[in-house]
Amino acid sequence: MNLRSIPFSAWIGIAGIAIAIFCALFAPMIAPFGERDVVGDVWLPPGGDFLLGTDNLGRDLLSRLIYGARTTIFVALAATVLSFSLGMLLSFTAAVVGGFTDQLFSRFNDLMMAIPTLIFALVVLAVLPQHLWILILVMAVLDSTRVFRIGRAVALDVAVMEFVEAARLRGEGSLWIIFREILPNTLSPLLAEFGLRFAFSILFLSTLSFLGLGIQPPAADWGGMVKDNKDGIIFGISAALVPGAAIATLAICVNLVVDWLMKRTSSLKGGRGDA
């Protein structure tokens, strides 16, 4: 891969993601105040000591934004990695083994996808106790249905190729076929898909937090910060818009990179439509 072949838009995306990850990793060092420290009056305007002002309890918005990057990115990334591993494992198994296994997995996946993700999450989170790992797990399982669909399509595309048949005829086992024959040929579309799922996870987590079902206070996360400060909106206080903008920016950055990855691969199946 040639560095100069990366378009400008993708560079913007990469830079944005890098900044967010930097904030997440070194939050305690760069944040001017603590995550949960009440340092001033409620909803102070931006400027002075508080670059972005303070929130509904008088905590520094910038500091919470930096700490929030940590939670948001960690949870979204964990959910994406998990959903990806799960979806890939099941979809590749379905595509390679075929027959009854494929039918079983695929039909169950259809069933899961017949319920909109957000509605499904609402129903499930209404029942389950509120723990971080449960949240990650629910997000991962729900999202893995989409990974499954795309993974199966991509794997089937490759699995019908004659070199896979040749490997079968040689007597190779399923593991060799998956890891040595199919996987190397699907990396590029799957990488794009990973980015897409990550962007979706960020939005989904933020939505859940905004609805009060995601990350629980007092931990800072971007969706939750919007919820905390939403009442200020009617008074013309823009504190809720700052974390909202952060979510949007990060998602845009990820999508810019994905867009570039997608253009490099033409074989990717499925759209970016999601619900």
Binding site: E162, F163, A166, L169, E181, N185
Partner: peptide, 23 residues
């Protein structure tokens, strides 16, 4: 079929492009 049985019958395809792993 055993590996030896598989070994004794080999196959050549029409499209060599798709018959070999591009990676």
């Amino acid at each position: 079929r055993s590996n030896d049985e598989l070994r004794r019958i080999q196959m050549i395809y029409q499209m060599a492009d798709t018959a070999m792993n591009p990676r």
